[in-house]
């Protein structure tokens, strides 16, 4: 077993353990921190697959920026410990067998239709020029569609967050603060 494979399995184990811990924890901040661990371990997997740029972006965007906003929100709301429930019977009866079946199916399809040769570190393009070519030339349409989608999401958030004009004028809304 090569060092490469050992590292790949180790990062995978961290990933799965973090994901399970994310569900098992009752306090939101612990769940958020496990999600950061999952993101960081995923970045490690990308690195091992030779996608250095994707690994770095994974850490900067997901583990760095987006999760900081999650933690920020949890801190700001001071969300408490969530209540334990017995769990739903539907999830036990259908969810877990369905999930197992789905992952087996996906694994079977992927293993059937892909070669067995491993990707070496540095096999994918890592210099800014090639990435720029790919993003802004080869895959320009998906890139632009994604940016429009994000713009719509931002506008939606602004619309939802703005108070209606009647409450801004005073009256009942002022009593709150």
């Amino acid at each position: 077993m090569s060092v490469h494979l050992v590292l790949f399995l180790a990062f995978g184990a961290v990933c799965v353990a973090g994901a399970i811990n994310l569900l098992a924890q009752t306090h939101p901040i612990n769940s958020a921190l496990s999600l950061i661990a999952v993101m960081a371990a995923l970045a490690g997997e990308y690195l091992l697959l030779g996608a250095e740029f994707v690994a770095a972006v994974q850490v900067i965007v997901y583990a760095g920026a987006i999760m900081v906003l999650f933690v920020f929100t949890i801190m700001l709301l001071n969300a408490g410990v969530e209540e334990r429930t017995k769990g739903s019977r539907v999830a036990v009866l259908f969810g877990i067998p369905g999930m197992l079946l789905g992952s087996i199916l996906v694994g079977w399809v992927v293993l059937r239709h892909s070669g067995t040769e491993a990707v070496a570190a540095g096999a994918l393009p890592g210099d800014p020029k090639t990435i720029g070519q790919l993003l802004f030339h080869e895959f320009l349409l998906p890139f632009e569609i994604t940016s429009v989608l994000i713009l719509i999401a931002i506008m939606g958030a602004v619309v939802l967050a703005t108070k209606p004009p009647s409450s801004l004028a005073g009256g009942t809304a002022r009593k709150v603060d």
Binding site: A40, V59, A63, A65, V68, V71
Partner: peptide, 8 residues
Amino acid sequence: GVTSIGVY
């Protein structure tokens, strides 16, 4: 990336 994690 490392500096953005340091915020935590």
